[in-house]
Design a protein around this nucleic acid. Structure first.
Lengths: 169, 169
DNA sequence: CTAAACTGCTCTCGTTTTGCAACTGGTTGT
DNA sequence: ACAACCAGTTGCAAAACGAGAGCAGTTTAG
């Protein structure tokens, strides 16, 4: 099976790797939702990916070195998927897509709040979040900063919107 | 024909619009190669898109408001495709993808040089290039800056690599 | 004036990808 | 022992993709 590239253009090559409707959603769920097991990715996804597609995409993400896999010592059947440095560095791509989508598409309030904050935060916030991801996915210690982490702030903002919407009915 | 969204997440919505292997390549060619006619997009593409796919993607890009269409007064059969503001603002997405691809994938030198410069140039350079695109695609005058434009600089760098490679044979 | 080349597509048809749903073989908790 | 949970796999129909030919009208070269 010879994988032939259509061209050596970096944009094209990137699209050949993650240019489909699911791969980046899986990366998103690993980044922002901290989904690390197959079942978590399968059932806790907003969009409802099907299991064969998930299995296939995880395989190519592994092949590409975007994601790594390890045994979960607490459970013989479970594996833990982690983002590699290469995967973590997809964050700016996701952040730009999120910002563009937030600006131009019909985004729901609770799912858009993270995009808004991330877009406003800019490269500085992205770098901080990537450091947090390096800690959780690669085990690389980072310097603690005062106050809540970027991940915590995003999550808190999301939950706040959900709570408000629930109250309003 | 009811278009149902999988979710209201901005990343998902963006992927539903441009998350395929061709749409962003068309935008890329319009941005960096100034391809404005159907034939230009069809025949001058690095990757060799086929005509039915090109027609289909242009249709959805038009529907989405990423691209606009106008008659070419110089030729009764020609139409001119232009990027809208919404389309121009895909530049940061492309730039991030280009930067990531340049760093991690097997990019050829001549096709990677633009990505390198754009990545190094950062948001400031992107903003300048977007202003140039607003001029050529939207007809919005911009303040002239001294020296060559970003578009010219990228093109010159590309041609320099091509010339050097040709000499080396 | 005529013919060749060019224009933006559309059509056909075989191949590939998608996605639902059921199923497998094993593990864990009660 | 048994239900619930784990990571996938398999079968199949529908949809999307993609190469190539074709088309009606337009422009250009001789």
């Amino acid at each position: 099976m010879i994988e032939q590239k259509r061209s050596g253009c970096p944009i094209n090559l990137t699209l050949e790797v993650v240019g489909d409707k699911w791969s980046l959603l899986i990366v998103r769920d690993m980044m922002f939702g901290n989904r690390r097991h197959f079942r978590e990715l399968l059932t806790k996804s907003e969009e409802g990916i099907s299991s064969n597609i998930l299995a296939d995409r995880l395989k190519t993400l592994l092949d590409q070195g975007i994601v790594t896999w390890a045994d979960d010592p607490s459970h013989k059947q479970k594996g833990i998927y982690s983002l590699s440095e290469q995967g973590i560095e997809l964050l700016p791509v996701l952040a730009q897509m999120a910002g563009w989508g937030f600006k131009y598409l019909d985004v729901t309030e609770e799912l858009g709040i993270r995009a808004k904050l991330l877009s406003e935060g800019g490269p500085r916030m992205w770098a901080e979040f990537m450091d947090e991801l390096r800690e959780t996915h690669l085990g690389i210690r980072r310097k603690r900063k005062a106050g809540p982490s970027v991940g915590e702030r995003l999550q808190a903002a999301y939950e706040k919107v959900v709570a408000r919407k629930a109250k309003q009915g």
